[in-house]
């Protein structure tokens, strides 16, 4: 058996792959936060709750009749509405994104002229409400979510066996990050978005409907969180707290990467997942705190974050 620095290969690779999986979620979530912060100037504390909603939406789309019967016996929908995992990857983010659009249109947009702090308080309050409602409706024990059949079992990567589902999560999250990066950094729409981040008034005076663009950006960031939620459903149990467990770490990732940086959040998200995984192998006692230690060091050395522009 191969061993690296005295650590057996399978253990190292196993932890590394777990770290990468966590990193994939950090990347997707902090990417959405970065997009929203850049455009709306709001630190979206509801992000974890919206991630959780994505997982719940996916779970609800799996077999709607089970939970409909829980709400009220006799309530049911046709079987074709049991969409299953693959359609939910699209439908859940669209539904949760539409909910985000509603939140932006009704409450969040009232805060743009105020200090950051108000947006933070409002979205924090929204997170508490959403999570509280979910706990009321479903309890806090969590629902199992069966891994889709096509992704059951392990795959042999040559140097290790990896559960197929984890490999899929890595590819899907990586692909989605690339797609978002491309959209923002390499397309005309993205150029408008970047310009509106710098000077929304002037972009609007060129004939762009900036208020609509802001709403859609929020919806897009929320949809990214929901997409992460769908990916997470088979890995973590679907429960009302799954977002708040993640979100504290994700905010540390955002601070380390630099508020609002697209590339920064992707690289930092995956990077810190790996750091966490390696810490579990070499110094397990520190694995829960290592990200915050990194955060302190980065803040001392580069207050604007690794990829942030100094203000």
């Amino acid at each position: 058996m191969i061993s690296i620095f005295g650590v057996p290969g399978p253990l190292l690779f196993g932890q590394l792959s777990l770290g990468l999986i966590n990193g994939a979620f950090y990347a997707l979530l902090s990417l959405g936060l970065a997009v929203i912060f850049g455009m709306l100037n709001i630190i979206n504390f509801a992000h974890g709750a919206l991630f959780m909603l994505g997982a719940f939406a996916s779970w609800m789309l799996l077999v709607p009749n089970t939970w409909l019967a829980m709400i009220s016996p006799g309530l049911s929908v046709p079987d074709w509405l049991s969409l299953g995992y693959w359609p939910a990857l699209v439908v859940a983010p669209v539904l949760v994104g539409a909910f985000g659009l509603l939140l932006e249109r009704t409450v969040i947009r009232r805060l743009y002229k105020l200090d950051h702090l108000y947006g933070l308080l409002l979205t924090f309050g929204m997170a508490l409400i959403i999570e509280g409602l979910a706990r009321n409706a479903f309890g806090s024990s969590g629902m199992p979510y069966r891994t889709p059949d096509a992704l059951q079992g392990p795959v042999n990567l040559g140097f290790m066996f990896m559960p197929k589902y984890r490999l899929w999560v890595l590819l899907a999250a990586g692909g989605m990050c690339l797609l978002t990066w491309f959209l923002i950094e390499r397309t005309q729409l993205g150029a408008r978005l970047r310009a509106a981040t710098e000077n929304p008034d002037l972009v609007q005076a060129f004939g762009v409907n900036v208020p609509r663009m802001i709403s859609l950006t929020y919806a897009g960031g929320v949809a990214l969180a929901a997409f992460a939620g769908v990916l997470a459903a088979p890995i973590y149990s679907v429960n009302p707290n799954m977002g708040s467990n993640f979100i504290i770490t994700v905010f540390a990732v955002v601070v380390i990467g630099g508020m609002g940086s697209i590339l920064g959040s992707i690289v930092t998200g995956f990077g810190l997942g790996i750091v966490e995984g390696l810490t579990k192998v070499f110094y397990p006692q520190a694995s829960a705190t290592v990200i915050f230690v990194v955060m302190v060091i980065v803040l001392l050395a580069r207050p604007a974050g690794l990829f942030g522009k100094a203000a």
């Binding site: 609007q204 005076a205 004939g207």
Partner: peptide
């Protein structure tokens, strides 16, 4: 009118 309408 709003700025985007005026531009258009």
């Amino acid at each position: 009118m709003r700025p985007d309408g005026i531009a258009r």
